Computed example of a mutant assay.
Amino acid sequence: MNKRNRHVYFILIIIVVIMGLMSRKLDSIPPFLKTYLPDTLWGLMVFFLMGFIFNKYSTLKITIYSLIFSYCIEISQLYHGEFIDSIRGTTLGGLVLGFGFLWSDLICYSVGILIGYLLDKYYMYKRGGKI
């Protein structure tokens, strides 16, 4: 049975969060990366978070859960009620829930999750079923 090391996944989550926050703050990165890298890293972070929570599930299940979660968050941005917008108005709420729906975000999330899938498959194979 595949089992992921939660300590490793926790560290990966922290690293990706830091990289995502830095990618929003650095002015020296190319405009294309500044536009799309944060959302791609958000998708990767969601994959690692799902791997942390569901550490015994298959890589495919984690990928599907990550895509469903990410897409639901993006679709929720079409709704702008007073309560949800007040949560989005906080720093953490804005980072987690976002502000406005963009098709490009769905692509970025998918790419980030695909990167997580490929890394997970590679290391699960390399380590004989354990990360």
Rank of each mutant, 00 (worst) to 15 (best):
Y36K: 03
I18F: 12
L60M: 13
L49M: 15
I53M: 06
R6L: 01
K61N: 09
Y36I: 05
S58C: 00
F69A: 04
R4K: 10
F48W: 14
I18P: 12
T40M: 15
T40W: 04
V17D: 13
G51Q: 05
L21H: 13
L41H: 06
N2M: 13
Y36P: 07
I18T: 12
Y36D: 09
K34H: 13
S58M: 03
L49D: 09
L44T: 10
M22Y: 14
N55R: 05
V16K: 11
F54E: 00
I11S: 07
F32R: 00
I29D: 00
T35C: 05
P38Y: 05
N2Q: 13
I53H: 01
Y36S: 03
L60P: 03
F10C: 14
K34F: 11
I13F: 13
L33C: 06
G20Y: 08
I64E: 02
L60G: 08
K61P: 03
D27R: 14
S23Y: 09
K61D: 11
K61M: 11
Y57I: 02
M19H: 03
F69N: 00
S23H: 07
I13S: 12
K56M: 06
I29K: 09
W42L: 09
M19E: 14
T63W: 09
D27C: 02
F47M: 15
N55C: 09
P30I: 10
V46N: 07
V16E: 14
F69S: 02
I53A: 05
I14Q: 11
I14W: 08
L60A: 13
I29A: 01
S58D: 00
L60S: 12
S70E: 00
N2F: 11
L33P: 01
K25M: 04
F54P: 01
M45A: 14
K56G: 08
K34C: 01
L60N: 12
I18R: 02
Y36E: 08
F10P: 07
I62W: 02
I29N: 07
F32V: 11
M22F: 14
Y36M: 04
M45S: 13
S70R: 00
P38A: 06
F47G: 06
L12H: 11
Y36A: 03
L12G: 11
M19P: 01
R4Q: 10
G43H: 04
T59M: 12
L44R: 08
M19W: 09
K3Q: 13
I53D: 02
I13R: 15
D27E: 11
N55W: 08
T35A: 12
G43C: 08
G20E: 10
L12V: 06
N5E: 14
S23Q: 05
M19Q: 11
P38C: 06
P38D: 00
M19A: 15
I64W: 06
L21T: 14
L41A: 09
T63V: 03
W42F: 15
F47D: 03
F69D: 02
F32N: 01
F69L: 10
Y71V: 04
L44C: 06
I62R: 01
M22E: 14
K3C: 11
D39Y: 10
F54I: 02
D27I: 12
F69G: 01
Y9K: 07
L49W: 11
F32Y: 13
F48G: 02
I11R: 00
G51P: 04
M45Q: 10
K25T: 02
V8P: 03
P31D: 15
N5D: 15
Y57A: 06
S28F: 15
N2H: 12
